[in-house]
Design a protein around this nucleic acid. Structure first.
Lengths: 272, 272
DNA sequence: TCGAGTAAAGGTCAGAGTGACCGTAACTCA
DNA sequence: TGAGTTACGGTCACTCTGACCTTTACTCGA
């Protein structure tokens, strides 16, 4: 039997009994929608209702047990599709949670991913008895340690938006700088000066003008931009983004992340 | 049986058969030592020789199967101690690797940690038939996907050293700024201006002068500094560092990381 | 004993980057 | 046709950083 180490410090045989930890995959899915009361753009997260014990009836992250023959990232993307009916425009591993007491009863280790889906698509996202969207900053008490997991995912999204070009994952193929700025403002929850935003985005070279403009805006027509995939993207280091096998569903080309190889340059931006 | 999700998209019962993925924990351990030929300070990594198939006789990361009743971070720290005889001064989860084909035969999912041990201690680290230290940038072909894992760990160490105060983990409780700078230079593999380094480090407030100096240096005696744990450290976001249960072995207080809770502020430095 | 050598410690200066802010452009609507 | 609105382009002051210089405080050899 294969093991992942070499010395005698490892047990003679590989695990396989019912006494082993169970492996689950969950995903924190982000979308932008207007807040129900304030009307301002806000981060929303879809959660699923637990239909069985433990923690029955509590809301939880979409996910499931990892099938032996499925890639981790595929399991995350599949879950995402089953929950929202959407394909992710960004998908990245977040962290693996494995505390002994995080689930009553059996030991469960969860590999958690976080994802972004397009706002336009999220509008028509499925919502039913067992699936509901929540404002990310106004969550009820969730099952297991899922509140903490979402806190961490939120922190990661907010810090990453500041140094990596990922905000466009909430938008379509083309967008105005005002739309891109609105994404930043919604995620970071603060006002951003339009002129300064334009300057830094253009200097970063992560977007290119399409030459088209948006008409009928009751003010000067804004230019449309497109994300430049050739630049940037060198952000996760040696583990570069990769598409999810057999999971292309709805819109835009998914920039899903899974390990690849080239040892690349550290993040751009500021990587503090 | 407990599951980590809620809808009917999950299988009825939890996994437990021999057909499930096996869960392993491995650790990339870093220490600083002079390079064997150039004499310059370099990153070294201890590896263990595989004594069984598959990949028998290839060098691999220290690690082992995850015991059901052991925390992930504890398993990493234990492995580290068994391999080097040292206690880590820094330990953080790196990534979870779970590709279908990464290990011939059984499906193996590895939760990988990375660690730093003190250079002084690393000098007297155990080395025998089955444990050997290698220069991090001059590795042979390793077992499984361990070359790629180490590439990623190296990238993480190098980018993180630039924005987080972690370099001191290679040093003792007190150190001169020249020693701290030497760590940065060794990790980043480039010259750093002493005066500018002093300025930025002092401005960051992450170190405090002890008032003592080092005598007998054939030049102006350098001051000794101590790492200021109260400042900074707000770096992993809601998941803060935490000590490893039952693993305090040799020297300095381990700033080992494991999930905790307070949603804190993004990294300092530049978080690009 | 004293000058040479060395690295510590403290400073200056120029260029890059950024937030605050202003002015003009280009559209719609009343 | 003018008022309203946002797009777009630019300036200014402040901060940060790399390059570089000067002085300090020790050891060592002549």
């Amino acid at each position: 039997m294969p093991e992942m180490t070499g010395t005698d410090t490892t047990p003679e045989r590989a695990p396989g009994g019912a006494s082993d930890a169970a492996l689950a995959v969950s995903t924190v899915i982000f979308a932008l929608r207007p807040h129900e009361t304030t009307g301002r753009m806000t981060l929303w997260i879809p959660l699923v209702r637990r239909t069985r014990d433990p923690q029955k009836d509590l809301w939880a992250l979409p996910g499931g047990w990892l099938p032996v023959d499925e890639e981790l990232v595929s399991a995350a993307a599949r879950t995402l599709g089953e929950t929202t009916g959407l394909a992710p425009t960004y998908l990245e591993q977040l962290y693996t949670f494995g505390e002994l007491e995080r689930s009553p009863g059996r030991r469960v280790v969860s590999v958690v991913y976080w994802a972004m889906v397009q706002s336009a698509e999220a509008e028509r996202a499925a919502e039913n008895e067992n699936v509901r969207w929540f404002v990310a900053d106004e969550l009820p008490l969730l099952a297991f340690d899922h509140n903490r997991i979402i806190d961490y995912a939120l922190w990661r999204l907010r810090t990453k938006v500041e140094y990596a070009a990922i905000a466009h994952a909430f938008l379509g193929a083309t967008f105005t700088l005002a739309e891109l700025r609105e994404v930043h403002e919604a995620v970071l929850q603060r006002h951003i000066d339009p002129a300064n935003f334009r300057r830094t985005v253009e200097a970063s070279g992560t977007v290119v003008a399409t030459g088209e403009v948006v008409a009928g805006t009751r003010h000067r027509p804004p230019r449309l931009y497109r994300y430049d995939a050739s630049i940037d993207l060198a952000d996760r280091g040696p583990l570069g983004p990769e598409s999810v096998p057999g999971t292309a569903a709805s819109g835009a080309a998914a920039a899903v992340s899974a390990p690849s190889s080239p040892p690349s340059v550290p993040h751009t931006g500021e990587q503090r």
